[in-house]
Design a binder for these strands. Structure first.
Lengths: 343, 343
DNA sequence: CCATATACTGAAAGCGTTTTCAAGCAAAGA
DNA sequence: TCTTTGCTTGAAAACGCTTTCAGTATATGG
């Protein structure tokens, strides 16, 4: 950063006061055409651009919104980022992204503090956060900013929340399988310490019970530490005497390994066994090349877009801050891994 | 943005001057332990964080670096973003990303001006820019910032440049094919108004001539407007009396359509025809599911990483600015679409 | 023609920091 | 005891901008 030309120099050159230059730049108040002309001319010849920091300091607003994403590079975020981008395009605010790698708590804290101290007017948080993290407390209580948390439903926080109805989504997936005539439906969950895993498992249970189907204990598997384990889980499911005709997986990465396991065992998908995933992820790990996985899609694009929109509206509004809580439904994307048992 | 607690309040609470608080916060100069204790205590109880804008204003530096990328969501940037992230992790600077959609010139200009006016100390530009764009002129001449341009070799600009040797990369690809025993090698280029297309075409020519091979006019095709045209180009190549045994494509997207065309014509890849691409793109358009495409990889990770590193070093250095110009070599990634004609 | 309203402009204060400068003070040396 | 030195501290200026306030000039109405 190296500021070259200031408002003062423009004022001197145009033979007016700084106030007048400011008025011209911000198109505020009234300035006679001839003065405006002189100022415009001075701005042009000096190639003046107002200093953002100085402006932010006095106005106490930056006209900017920050987004913090864990692992920005991850193609999983394709639609989310697109939503942010489109939201950014439609707002007059500057939108900036910060990426926090994996479990790097330090930089997570660094970026939240950085953004919330006079760099942006609001932030969007994607990733998992805990209510008692110091920096979240700071953001919530001391920074005076409003912010959006995506996929994090922390009751004690007074912020906007964009949530996905994982229970319902999972339920609809299993109901979809049931609708295709399946009734021996197994489940492979993900890391069971995560909320999303238990939610989706509950959705599975809901659907099974709702349809009056028995839930067998050995139909429930968990790829606890890593989605690669989906392979082993599937193998043991397929080895059961009463082999399930369909498997609902907690996410597409697990599902991709489940499909692989089935194919490796000589089973056909979906003729011999149907597999369903969650997330509708377009890039699967380890160069997956099986059939495209029927899945449950989350409206990530919409969530990204709405995050920016909601913040923009709140910032422009003069009404007192009223946090928004949005629950997003999911939709089933029919692809190639689910077959029908009917007819 | 809503600043709550200022250095003034901390000073009052700790019964010291603002200067002392500043010294404690910045760990500069000497402060007696007891005063430091009082200040630390006041900071903690008030939950004080220094205002970034105010600091930037007086120090004329922001300890931040900005990155502008066209279409941040595009998975093509996977490695580039990873490089940026790792570079960011290793520097003490704050690193922020801005995304510019497609041909949205306005926001391109908006973000460059935004960043370069007291928001960051340096920027990285990925995307295509022209020397005579006003905002590039501003960045180069008036902003006083140093910046990196990736893949843009504009002579008149006094900036850091990170370039990819497309000629060499294409040459090595074709030489690789020749090494596999091919001598009837065709080429499908991309948009011929782009520098990268002509460079890669020239690399093709270099390799052919270097090996003493004739270049047939009807072996040269161009998917000018869209990579989908790779399909048609390939079809006409495959219809030739003297069918080429290998096709070098200007990029992987085109190559993927070329492969499809061959397969659709009942040809086997690579047994009947070899196909080679460029970029080693991990996500191909339109759910490509053919064999993995042998390609030329650009060190995008390295380029991203180096961009941050170079800027960090320059910013920390007291020496006068000396622009860096780096040319990166490419490497061949052997996958499944090239066969050998020998033995 | 005077009083009043209106439009325009500039001086100056202030935003929250850092940093310079001088003052105060204790320790050290003569 | 008196300087000198070095360390610690605070007052105040400055960074570049916006905005208030007051002042001047012009237009409006009676």
């Amino acid at each position: 950063m190296a500021q070259i030309v200031t408002i003062k120099e423009v004022a001197k050159r145009a033979n007016v006061s700084q106030a007048t230059v400011s008025r011209v730049v911000n198109q505020i108040g009234n300035v006679t055409p001839e003065l405006k002309l002189k100022v415009d001319h001075a701005i042009e010849t000096l190639n003046y651009s107002p200093n953002h920091a100085a402006r932010a300091l006095v106005k106490k607003q930056t006209d900017s919104i920050g987004i913090i994403v864990h692992n920005l590079h991850d193609p999983f975020f394709y639609d989310l980022i697109k939503g942010f981008e489109e939201g950014a395009r439609q707002t007059s605010y500057n939108v900036v992204f910060c990426s926090v790698l994996g479990g790097d708590m330090d930089s997570k804290e660094k970026y939240i503090r950085y953004l919330s101290n006079g760099v942006v007017d609001a932030v969007v948080l994607y990733g998992s956060y805990l209510a008692d993290e110091a920096v979240i407390q700071y953001l919530n209580n001391a920074s005076g900013m409003n912010y959006v948390m995506i996929e994090n439903d922390i009751r004690t926080l007074n912020c906007n929340k964009m949530l996905i109805d994982n229970v319902c989504g999972a339920k609809s997936a299993v109901e979809y399988l049931i609708g295709k005539g399946h009734n021996r439906i197994a489940h492979i969950g993900g890391n069971s310490s995560k909320r999303v895993t238990t939610d989706r498992f509950n959705g599975y249970l809901d659907a099974m019970r709702g349809a009056g189907l028995e839930v067998w204990g050995n139909y429930i598997q968990h790829a606890n530490t890593d989605y690669h384990l989906g392979y082993e889980c599937m193998k043991s499911l397929m080895a059961l005497r009463e082999r399930p005709t369909a498997v609902f997986c907690s996410d597409d990465a697990i599902a991709s390994f489940a499909v692989r396991a089935a194919l490796d065992m000589g089973l056909r998908v979906p003729e011999d066994v149907s597999v369903m995933g969650f997330d509708n992820q377009r890039i699967l790990p380890d160069r997956y090349r099986g059939p495209d996985i029927t899945s449950v899609e989350q409206p990530l694009y919409q969530i990204g877009f709405d995050s920016i929109r909601v913040l923009t509206e709140q910032l422009k509004s003069s009404k007192p801050f009223e946090p928004v809580r949005m629950m997003y439904g999911t939709s089933i994307v029919e692809k190639e891994t689910v077959g029908s048992l009917k007819g």
